[in-house]
């Protein structure tokens, strides 16, 4: 055993994309491997070691009773627990089930629904255990991930901005797609981290990094409406990768209730 900090990477309900961001950080990966002992990382190696872990990276959301038990054990085994990605941080795209009848999905998807044991909701890790740091993104940004690992090792606060995507658009010179093209964009209420990639390709922001600090959802969705976007579509825009984050959820529920009230 080396004296290096021990890192564990754990997966819950997710697509593995965020773990792959760590593997994709090729330039820095060897550096990471030098700095920490990778004790548990099934995506990278089948050589697994038991806890305790100094740092745990948690990908994915909680969707089964088994998940609930497992995350509690990992928490007990871990000193500093970091959630990585939209699933772990807000419940992910699979949290769409929270607005639907999960049993109905199960019965229409699976030939033998009796074999399926699942919760009716997909929820964030922080809804179940204490989380020390949440790293946003669908997927996460590999440079931010390295920054988080680095800062935890150095005992300092990670440098991951909470400002809106708009600031990054402007820094890179991208023209506002909402003002110049009338494209609905969640950028003004979404946290930066992706380097504002979608507006650069003339698409509105999909909100992959979840709500920015103190977002004004009501004002933005009022503007979407004023630009002619139907309420149903606004609700759909908000209910995507981070639809279950508190700020996006409250706003989509508010608009849905308005629409239901009219019908």
């Amino acid at each position: 055993m080396s004296g290096k900090p021990r890192l564990g990477v754990f997966k819950f309900a997710s697509c593995d994309g965020c773990q792959l961001s760590l593997l994709a950080a090729e330039d820095q990966l060897l550096g990471v491997a030098d700095t920490v002992e990778i004790a548990y990382f099934l995506e990278a190696t089948s050589r697994i070691q038991p806890g305790p872990y100094d740092i745990a990276l948690i990908e994915g959301s909680i969707t089964t009773q088994h998940d609930v038990e497992r995350i509690k054990q990992i928490r007990a085994d871990t000193h500093f627990l970091v959630t990585i990605g939209a699933c772990a941080t807000s419940g992910g795209i699979q949290a769409l089930r929270n607005w639907s009848d999960c049993d109905e999905f199960v019965s229409s998807v699976y030939a033998t629904p009796d074999y399926i044991s699942t919760l009716a909701t997909s929820t964030a890790i922080a809804d179940h255990v204490k989380v020390d740091f949440e790293l946003r993104g669908c997927p996460i940004n590999q440079y931010q991930l390295i920054e988080v690992i680095q800062s935890v090792l150095a005992g300092r606060r990670p440098r991951t901005p909470v400002h809106s995507v708009c600031l990054d658009c402007k820094r890179r010179g991208t023209v506002c797609v909402m003002v110049a093209q009338g494209t609905a964009c969640l950028g003004p209420v979404t946290q930066a981290g992706c380097n504002a990639i979608c507006p650069e390709y003339n698409r509105g922001c999909y909100g992959c990094f979840g709500p920015a600090a103190q977002p004004n959802l009501v004002s933005l969705t009022d503007q979407f409406s004023a630009n002619g976007m139907p309420r149903e579509q606004i609700v759909n825009n908000l209910r995507s990768f981070n639809g279950n984050s508190p700020e996006f959820r409250v706003e989509s529920d508010r608009i849905q209730a308005e629409q239901d009230g009219e019908q």
């Binding site: 708009c166 600031l167 920015a212």
Partner: peptide, 25 residues
């Protein structure tokens, strides 16, 4: 107000900046 920073970014006189240290691993 969205507090999104767009007005300050497009303003030709706004001059605020932040400074940060970026290190390798």
């Amino acid at each position: 107000c969205l507090s999104c920073t767009n007005c300050t970014m497009v303003c030709p006189t706004c001059f605020c900046s932040s400074v940060e240290e970026v290190s390798d691993l």
